[in-house]
Design a protein around this nucleic acid. Structure first.
Length: 514
RNA sequence: GUCUCCGUAGCUCAGCUGGUAGAGCAGCUGACUCUUAAUCAGCGGGUCACAGGUUCGAAUCCUGUCGGGGACACCA
């Protein structure tokens, strides 16, 4: 690590490899070859398409000239003939090059000098030729011409592979995250994860669009942050000379749109929370929020179930996937169990009938760290996450939460101390959070005021009172169901990625130099 | 933020209880016109993360700093 940093810090200090490649570049230029030509090389085919087409029909390419472009990943030079592994966006294909085929009028310099001496692993070339099978049966392209499309000045880590076994794979997480561009070149699994991430998001988007919901964009820079309990990033607008916050959620804006009569809105929102970083948390992350008018949380449970089942099926072709060695089945219906029942099941405690003091006492006895300022809801939540969550592997709805934990949720229609809220727990982790939205402006004001009181008592995550949001509610918001799904967490689950850094292209890291 | 482990050539890693660095791949030179972790012969490449300290002598021991992983705490 240290050494490539050094090379980056001090441009004059180049490794032997880098000096070689710069010299090769110079020589190419001296030969009249542009090491960075314009993008006018016509690509007619991609590696994987050629291979699948020929596999289906052995004569698919008879009489066909193909042009492919990609990065040189391996070279095997045997005097007057060479093999090269070329990697493009869809995969890899072998190229066969012969001196005789690349020479014209007795000039073999393209093969002897350019190919053998001046091109390197990592360079990007275009190849024109015809498709054939080698004696051992590997589908290859017999090159009739090659062209340098981009000279690489840094050596690529060399990863070799035989019969599925990968040798010298680059596993250093710091290298992979800082230089994701290299990770993507050399780690097929990393490419796979990000392609699947895109598929998952696309799958959700089509599901929602198909139901007629409107995809919208709401402010990232907010004068009042809200919609979640979290610490925000603070920034400053110079021209307006005012404090702005990077959003921690887009909930309050989406619900304003419900007031506005849009009835069904969603947004894939980048949210920002000023908190610790670990394998489940990145300071900026993606959250899907969806709000639908004239619906409640029961309806939303059905929708979430259906949507996620379909997403998993579209991605994997089955509802049953393996995560960290465990089987998880997303097939509907998922169990629905109330928060208090779940606690009773896993701890034997009937917390509903306990006084605050009793609750505090049993929590202490069970080893739950209880902050003296923590309210009843917080203790219950803590009990749940300690004793229940880890046991919930298959997707499970946990429903009906204490009111003080959910200042934006509608009170339960039968139990005023609860709200109509559910979370989906899967693989021991929260996957989404949803509720029947609170649309009573007076109750909402009271809940905000309770949050303000928490804030005064020092809770840095307490909500701010959003006057404009209250004004919107006073105009009337229809009964509405809303849900938030942590997309990064969902992608981790569905791609079997152990760290959030593996599903975010450029995860946050400390600067390389201070 | 706390605890813990880690940082040696472009990459993957050796380097035992201190005697100032080694392998494979990659690179360079040469041979080889169906190879596929190509092969064969030869060669080069390192402020051992950084800064102090202990010592005759430090990649190795100690302290600190930087960066990373993991766990805990807060959260999604």
């Amino acid at each position: 690590m240290g050494c490539y940093l050094r090379a980056m810090q001090v441009p004059g200090v180049l490794s032997e490899h880098e000096r070689m490649r710069r010299e090769a570049r110079r020589q190419l230029e001296a030969m009249g070859i542009d090491p960075y030509p314009p993008g006018d090389f016509e690509v007619t085919h991609h590696s994987a398409d050629i291979i699948s087409a020929l596999t289906q029909d052995e004569h698919a390419f008879s009489g066909v000239r193909v042009s492919v472009a990609g990065r040189i990943m391996a070279r095997r030079i045997m005097g007057g003939a060479s093999f090269c592994t070329l990697q493009d966006a869809k995969g890899r294909i072998q190229i066969y090059l012969k001196r005789d085929d690349l020479s014209h009028d007795g000039d073999s310099s393209l093969y002897e000098v350019v190919w053998k001496k001046l091109l390197d692993l990592g360079d990007i070339i275009g190849v024109q030729g015809y498709v054939f099978r080698t004696r051992t049966g590997e589908i290859s392209i017999h090159a009739l011409s090659i062209r340098l499309l981009c000279k690489a000045l840094r050596p690529l880590p060399v990863v070799k592979e035989k019969e599925g076994h990968v040798y010298d794979a680059v596993t250093d997480p710091e290298f992979r995250y800082r230089q994701r561009y290299v990770d993507l070149i050399i780690n097929a699994d990393s490419r796979r994860v990000f392609i699947q991430r895109a598929q998952i998001i696309q799958s959700i988007r089509s599901f929602l669009l198909q139901r007629g919901y409107l995809e919208v964009e709401t402010p990232v820079l907010q004068p009042v942050y809200g919609g979640a309990l979290a610490r925000p990033f603070v920034t400053h607008h110079n021209a307006l000379d005012m404090k702005l916050y990077l959003r921690i959620a887009d909930e309050l804006y989406l619900k304003r749109l419900i007031v506005g009569g849009l009835d069904g809105v969603f947004e894939f929102a980048k949210d920002f929370r000023n908190e610790g970083i670990d394998r489940y948390h990145n300071p900026e992350f993606t959250m899907l929020e969806l709000y639908v008018a004239y619906k409640d949380y029961f309806w939303m449970m059905d929708l979430v179930e259906e949507m996620l089942e379909q997403v998993v099926r579209e991605l994997h072709g089955t509802t049953c996937i393996t995560v960290g060695g465990r089987q998880i089945d997303f097939r509907r219906p998922w169990p629905r169990i109330s928060l208090l029942e779940a606690i009773a099941q896993h701890t034997g405690l009937q917390v509903a009938t306990m006084s605050d003091a009793q609750l505090r006492q049993v929590a202490k006895e069970r080893g739950v760290a209880v902050d003296p300022s923590a309210g009843r809801g917080k203790i219950i939540d803590e009990l749940f996450s300690m004793f229940c969550e880890p046991h919930l592997i298959h997707p499970t709805f946990i429903v009906d939460y204490p009111v003080e934990m959910s200042p934006l949720a509608r009170r339960h229609r039968h139990h005023p101390e609860l709200v109509e809220r559910f979370e989906v727990i899967c693989n021991g982790k929260e996957l989404c959070n949803a509720f029947s939205e609170l649309n009573d402006p007076l109750d909402q004001r009271k809940r905000f005021e309770e949050q303000l009181e928490l804030g005064r008592r020092g809770d840095p995550e307490a909500m701010q009172l959003d006057e404009d949001y209250l004004r919107a509610l006073e105009y009337g918001m229809p009964p509405t169901a809303g849900v938030g799904i942590g997309i990064d967490r969902l992608v981790m689950l569905l791609t079997n990625a152990p760290s959030i850094q593996d599903v975010i292209l450029f995860p946050h890291l400390r600067p390389e130099r201070h």
